[in-house]
């Protein structure tokens, strides 16, 4: 019994210490002076983290928009409300699906790659050698990746939503025959820029920070062995996905919770 209590205490202390390390890590990485070289490094990471995620976001956004339209139509048509299809597709995407699914895809594609890349740098002593050259890896390696994730996820989210709406149009209007005027005008009437679009963007900014933070911290803090890298990469995807889903509920409750 005493052993179990001791193990629980040790576990709790380990978790608290990891949270403390992660917090310090974030502060030390984010708060550094911008420089011209830092900007170039950030641009390179924008390509690696952001541009290279565009294809998966485009394809996923298109299919999700198409499925939404198909599912939505079969329900709405029963109430004779199929003209509200544009409104349903747009609100679902802008408020929820675009920020959440883009973040989940981002965690799987870019997050795991970031963890593996930084972890391998640690395992091959590249981070240590950088420190010994007098260059802080938090500034040179971690900060550009963190900022790239923070900036690129909201852009990917916008791309996801736009392509999704277009996918909904293809299925709803071109295939199922919903009148295109009502598809667009209902959408225009019901989607509020501040209440829906900006709130969706706030969500994706939060997700961008959290997913990238988890990914780079897991890479930086891992045990530098092949097993350590594999575990850390898995942890990145699991923790980041759970964090996105949990935070989505919290943010949704804060943004839209007073409706009822």
């Amino acid at each position: 019994m005493i052993d179990r209590i001791a193990a629980l205490g040790r576990g709790t202390l380990d978790v608290l210490m990891a949270i403390g390390r992660a917090g310090l890590f974030l502060v030390q990485s984010v708060f550094c002076l911008p420089s011209r070289e830092g900007f170039h490094l950030w641009l390179r990471q924008m390509h690696f983290v952001g541009v290279m995620s565009v294809a998966i976001v485009l394809v996923s956004g298109l299919f999700i928009g198409m499925v939404l339209a198909l599912q939505g139509y079969t329900i709405l048509v029963g109430f004779g409300a199929d003209e509200a299809l544009g409104q349903m597709v747009a609100l679902s995407l802008v408020r929820e699906l675009a920020p959440v699914v883009a973040a989940l895809l981002f965690a799987g594609r870019a997050g795991s790659a970031l963890t593996a890349e930084i972890g391998l740098m640690k395992a091959t002593e590249q981070l240590t050698s950088m420190e010994m050259i007098g260059v802080d890896p938090l500034r040179r390696i971690v900060a550009p990746r963190l900022w790239a994730g923070f900036v690129s996820l909201p852009i990917l989210t916008v791309i996801f939503a736009v392509v999704g709406i277009w996918g909904g149009y293809l299925v709803g209007v071109d295939w199922l025959g919903v009148y295109d005027g009502s598809y667009w005008s209902n959408m225009q009437d019901s989607v509020d820029f501040v209440g829906d679009v900006l709130n969706g963007m706030v969500k994706s900014l939060v997700f961008g920070l959290v997913v990238t933070w988890i990914a780079v911290f897991q890479g930086y803090d891992l045990v530098p062995t092949s097993e350590g890298i594999s575990r850390a990469t898995t942890r990145t995807v699991v923790y980041a996905s759970l964090a996105v889903l949990g935070l989505d509920f919290v943010l949704t409750a804060l943004m839209f919770g007073d409706l009822g």
């Binding site: 391998l120 740098m121 091959t124 002593e125 590249q126 240590t128 050698s129 950088m130 420190e131 010994m132 050259i133 007098g134 260059v135 802080d136």
Partner: peptide
């Protein structure tokens, strides 16, 4: 402090067992 330590390290070179070249 961290900043001064990095400054001091500029006066040091280290040859790692693995080479630790930036890949």
């Amino acid at each position: 402090p961290r900043r001064s330590l990095f400054k001091l390290r500029r006066r040091m070179g280290m040859l790692f067992q693995s080479g630790a070249l930036f890949s």
